[in-house]
Nucleic acid binder design. Structure first.
Lengths: 352, 352
DNA sequence: GATGCACATGTAAGCGCTATCATTATACTT
DNA sequence: AAGTATAATGATAGCGCTTACATGTGCATC
């Protein structure tokens, strides 16, 4: 598996010129005579020479590579962000490498150290809601990173974080989701959220409460649970609501933290004998590729994650940090239905 | 956004020692007196010094970074591979960057050039079935890459490709899928495959044919279509079969290239008024996270993609190239049912 | 007290490029 | 023909590290 590559010296001696001249044709300088250029190009081709970005980076100020810190790639939500960043980066010859958040506290090879050592041209960090203590810890890590390279935040970025960012106003979004449910006639709207103890004014929780308030609906504690955003936990979340409450108090609508949670909710609802969407309207967020193929097809919110990733990469590459908020839009499918006061008997009828 | 980092010289002068000594404590050499070590470590901490991997790579022979070439990340199948490789790599302090296949033929910044310039310690390339001419082109690209770094192939790797690999015997797998359907009593088994013109003996097509043959079932051309592996195309694939054939000839089982295609098939079936799984058994491959949440929950094949990615990374990092085949297992869920000769009337009854 | 030998540390030569400056070949003045 | 501007090329000093190799201690040995 060993490989020995040609260097600029090999090419130079091959072409009978100095390395400076080779460097010139490499970078397409015009001050090289056509004859010389030809000789050099021939030598390059003959030796299959490719300049080493490593050596270039040492001299220059750019490594032509970006980093991205994501909780995990298995949730397609994050894969979309990565893809957006990667595609944008490639346009400018940048590569992007992944550093999962989960290993932040790894004893060896924690992402912060790996990132810093790599002297990337910048790093995109996906921020999630965190309980206050962890949030402080994150901030410290971010400020440390900032010493080594530009940092751009994405995701649910608290407004008091002093970093360039492309963020999502999750409060406004969740409020819109509540209002949509209200417009369908729902009054018992459950919410499966993420982290509870956060103080960020833009978090989903706040939007949920505001939406309810504007509709003059009570905010009932037993309609709200928290989880980590997986389908299993989403299912467990709704399970706990349905198992705790008497059927007459069951919510008629549930808003999930994300599509994964919503998938879990659909499952839970079915197992409790509810017909979807007649007995329960379910709404998710992220608009994953599978949303249209669920039954009923899941109404979700497109948060334009590819654009988020691309924009963040752009800020780094162009050296134009900024603070922006990405817009979003509700994607209507079949999982939400208008409420009917006098319900016919539930379960076990067609779902197609 | 500018950042100016401390170098080994700063630390050395700060600690009042030579850079060689700093380098020694950096690499944990034992020949440094405790007193000196302490001084140096203090200086490192004070200046927030992190050695540059760039400079290290120039001297040493390793860049501590891997590349991975994947068609696209949006299919969770590939995200699983990436995750496996990334997690394994991190254990040894390697980072991994992504180079999408789709941009192989990009005029500028094609992955092959980007990879070569980056002097990675190795690259994992995910190989898909390709028509013969494209396959030849791929092989040329791979051999070019090999000059610069170790290359490990994953995915459906033709046996005549002379590269270390972790491959999938898709023929054996598909054959097993057919036999499973046969064991359920199915005789009219459709197949939505990938590329048609490939000659690889391990491809799915071959397994489909062999499975049918062993069951003494005819291989009917109109039961087999090809697509690119998206849900939309999967749906279009089954649509075309159902639209072409009279209902009495409709297949009672369909095997999809992957779960995405299978999702599309479920959709198509529903739109044609079929009740699932009673009227049509559907099977996918890849065991995506959403498979359990589809309705009916999708029976699939787990091809252990995380392990594949991890193993490939391992080969590169340990410098132990090999040629291996990953095993797989059918994951039974609810989308496949035993056939019943005398069907009751179809559509519109419960699916829960 | 001269000799030898660990052990601890410093010196300096790369690694493969870029970029600055110096040098030479060529062309253009008057 | 001599002088000068101009274009083409070469020599070389870094960039931030690693790694022989050289140097300098202190201490046991005889």
């Amino acid at each position: 598996m060993t490989t020995e590559n040609a260097t600029i010296y090999d090419v130079a001696s091959d072409a009978g010129v100095s390395i400076a001249t080779v460097s010139r044709v490499l970078r397409g300088e015009s001050s090289v005579s056509p004859k010389t250029r030809e000789k050099v190009e021939a030598a390059i081709a003959r030796r299959h020479y490719r300049p080493s970005i490593i050596a270039r980076s040492l001299t220059g100020k750019t490594t032509k590579s970006l980093g991205i810190v994501l909780p995990k790639l298995l949730n397609p939500h994050y894969a979309m962000i990565f893809t957006g960043a990667q595609e944008e980066a490639r346009q400018s010859g940048y590569s992007v490498s992944l550093f999962p958040w989960s290993s932040l506290h790894a004893r060896e090879y924690d992402p912060a150290t790996m990132l810093a050592e790599r002297r990337l041209d910048g790093v995109i960090v996906c921020v999630e809601y965190l309980p206050p203590d962890q949030s402080e810890e994150l901030l410290t890590a971010l400020r440390g990173l900032k010493r080594f390279m530009p940092v751009v935040l994405i995701g649910c970025v608290p407004p008091d974080y002093d970093f360039p960012a492309v963020s999502l106003n999750a409060a406004a979004m969740t409020k819109a989701m509540v209002k949509y449910m209200v417009s369908l006639g729902h009054e018992k709207i459950a919410f499966i959220g993420g982290v509870q103890e956060d103080t960020d004014p833009l978090r989903r929780d706040v939007g949920y409460e505001e939406g309810l308030k504007e509709a003059k609906l009570p905010c009932i504690a037993s309609y709200r649970v928290y989880c980590k955003g997986t389908p299993e936990e989403g299912k467990a979340g709704l399970d706990s609501i349905l198992n705790t409450l008497k059927p007459e108090y069951w919510p008629t609508a549930v808003i999930g933290l994300n599509d994964l949670v919503a998938m879990g909710c659909q499952q839970s609802a079915r197992e409790h004998g509810l017909a979807l969407p007649r007995d329960l309207s379910v709404m998710g967020c992220d608009n994953l590729f599978c949303a249209p193929y669920l039954l009923p097809a899941l109404t979700s919110v497109d948060t334009h994650q590819q654009r988020v990733g691309a924009r963040a990469a752009q800020m780094i590459i162009r050296g134009e940090p900024a603070r922006e908020t990405m817009d979003w839009e509700i994607i209507h499918r079949d999982s939400c239905a208008a409420i009917r006061e006098n319900r016919p008997d539930a379960a076990n009828d067609s779902v197609i």
